[in-house]
C-alpha cells in the first residue's frame, strides 16, 4: 500500500471493478438508474465535503450550486440550442459567478453565521428560480436533449440509464481525482491549516479569507458539474432541485462514513440511495429514514461509521498521515 505504484494499480483495479458494478449486480434498469444516481449525487456531495471536511464550515447553499449547474445546462441547450460541452462551460462559469458573490458576502462570517447566510442564500435562489420566467418559473424547463459529448469523429452520446452510466462514472472518477489532488495540494494543506489553527496560518503568511474563497469556488464547481449531468439525465429541471432532501442527502453522505475520508461521501451516498431504490418506504418514509440516520450517526458516533474500526485507523498513524489524527483534531477544534 505504501508504494506509490502499488497504490496506483490498486486504484485502477478499484476503478475498473466499479465500472463493471452494474453488470455484476444484474444489469437491470433499476440497478443502472440507482448507480447513475449514486454517481451523480456522490459527485454533488464532494462539493460539500470539501467545505465541511477541509474548511470545517457547513455550507447550506450547495443545493443552489447543484441547481445552478442544472439550470445552466437546461437554458443553454433548450433555450439557446448549444451543445453539452458549452453547457458544461456555462454551468461552471455560472457556479463560479454565484460562488464569487456568495463568497464575498460570507467571507467574514464563521460557524453558524456562515451557515445561516448560506441557508438564506439557498432560499433566495429558489425564490428567484420559481419566479423568474427566464429560469422557467415554477414550471421549470422541460425537453433537455439527450447528452451528446461527441468530439470530432468520436461519438459520445447517451439517452437512457445504461448508456448514461459511463458518463456518470467518469464524472465521479474525475471528481474523486480532483478531491484527492486538492487534499494534497498547497491549497488543500493551507485550507486545513486555516481551519485548524487560523493564527498559525496567519503567521505563516497565509491569507485565510483568500483561501476560504478559493476552496468555496472549487466546491461550487464540483457540485455544479454534477448538476450539469443531472439535468441531462432527468431531461428536466425545476425548483425541486432546491429541495432540502438533496441538502440532507449531501450532509448525511459526508457525515455517514466520516470526514476527510476520500471514499466516504461515495459510500454514504451509495448506502442511502440503495435504501431508497431497493428498500423504499415511500417518500415520507425515506425522509424519515434519512433524518433518523443522520441524527443517529451524529449522536452515537459523531466521527462517522469509520471511527468504529479504531485499529485500521491507528495503524497508519505511525506514518504520520492518518486521517484519524486529523479527524480527531477537527472534532476537538469544532
Amino acid at each position: 500500500m505504501t508504494h506509490p505504484l502499488a497504490r496506483l494499480v490498486l486504484a485502477a483495479l478499484l476503478a475498473a471493478a466499479g465500472f463493471l458494478l452494474p453488470v455484476l449486480l444484474g444489469g437491470s434498469t433499476l440497478v443502472y438508474d440507482t448507480l447513475v444516481a449514486i454517481a451523480i449525487f456522490a459527485a454533488m456531495s464532494y462539493g460539500l465535503d470539501v467545505i465541511l471536511s477541509d474548511l470545517g464550515e457547513i455550507s447550506l447553499v450547495h443545493t443552489a450550486f447543484f441547481a445552478t449547474g442544472a439550470y445552466a445546462a437546461a437554458i443553454l441547450t433548450v433555450t439557446y440550442g448549444f451543445g453539452a460541452w458549452t453547457a458544461l462551460a456555462g454551468a461552471v462559469l455560472a457556479a463560479l459567478a454565484l460562488a464569487l458573490v456568495l463568497g464575498a458576502i460570507t467571507l467574514r462570517t464563521r460557524e453558524f453565521a456562515f451557515s445561516l447566510v448560506t441557508y438564506a442564500a439557498a432560499v433566495v435562489c429558489m425564490n428567484v428560480a420559481s419566479n423568474w420566467d427566464f429560469l422557467g418559473g415554477s414550471d421549470g424547463i422541460v425537453g433537455i436533449p439527450p447528452l451528446d459529448l461527441s468530439v470530432g469523429p468520436v461519438e459520445l452520446t447517451a439517452g437512457r440509464s445504461p448508456e448514461f452510466w459511463p458518463f456518470a462514472y467518469a464524472l465521479l472518477l474525475v471528481t474523486l481525482y480532483v478531491v484527492h489532488r486538492f487534499r494534497r495540494s498547497r491549497l488543500g494543506q493551507a485550507a486545513l491549516m486555516v481551519h485548524m489553527n487560523p493564527r498559525l496560518a496567519t503567521m505563516c503568511g497565509l491569507d485565510g479569507n483568500r483561501i476560504r474563497l478559493q476552496v468555496f469556488l472549487l466546491s461550487a464547481v464540483i457540485s455544479a458539474a454534477a448538476g450539469w449531468l443531472y439535468a441531462f439525465q432527468r431531461a428536466y429541471v425545476g425548483t425541486d432541485l432546491f429541495d432540502t432532501y438533496f441538502l440532507v442527502l449531501m450532509l448525511t453522505g459526508v457525515i455517514l462514513a466520516g470526514r476527510r475520508i476520500l471514499l466516504g461521501p461515495l459510500l454514504g451516498t451509495a448506502l442511502l440511495l440503495f435504501q431508497k431504490s431497493f428498500a423504499s418506504l415511500g417518500a415520507y418514509g425515506d425522509k424519515l429514514v434519512l433524518g433518523v440516520v443522520l441524527v443517529a450517526v451524529l449522536c452515537l458516533c459523531p466521527r462517522g461509521l469509520a471511527s468504529l474500526w479504531p485499529r485500521r485507523r491507528s495503524a497508519p498513524a505511525a506514518t504520520g498521515t492518518a486521517t484519524g489524527e486529523i479527524g480527531a483534531a477537527s472534532t476537538r477544534h469544532a
Partner: peptide, 21 residues
C-alpha cells in the same frame, strides 16, 4: 457546533417524514 447544526437538520427532516406519514 458543526455537528449540532447538521443534527438539527436531520431532526427536522425526520419530523417532516413522520408528519407526512
Amino acid at each position: 457546533l458543526v455537528s449540532l447544526m447538521i443534527v438539527t437538520l436531520g431532526f427536522g427532516q425526520a419530523l417532516e417524514g413522520a408528519a407526512g406519514l
